[in-house]
Amino acid sequence: MEIPRHWRLQKQRLALVGEVCPHCQAKIFPARDVCPECGGEAKTAFKFSGKGEVYSFTTLHSVPAGFEENAPYTVALVKLDEGPIITAQLTDVGEREVKIGTPVEMVTRRIRQDGDERGMLIYGYKFRPVLRMS
């Protein structure tokens, strides 16, 4: 069981909480100690909007242990509106065409279980094509 490593990242995975650099205002995801933009110390929590666009994507047919039940699935690099790029699965794509530049939004989904059906459930961010709003 790998409880601590997943628990430690819950705020990042469930609520897309990263950081904003107090020195240069760069938005950072995932959180880190040193701002990649200015090299200053980073520590101020920042909640991302979850809006972004597809920077790149690929569909995996051969998948690693722990993800077999969901194969095949699409993984994307998503460029968040606030700047950073993150790696995440796309979900609820259906027959919608995904392209580089497709607007997507964050949803929280079940990523996998830790080990077998006795293990903890790991939830986190995925992205889907933006829902049409009224």
């Binding site: 969901n70 609820d92 929280t108």
Partner: peptide
Amino acid sequence: GLDEDTIT
């Protein structure tokens, strides 16, 4: 879907 449950 495969990644959905009561929590999501």
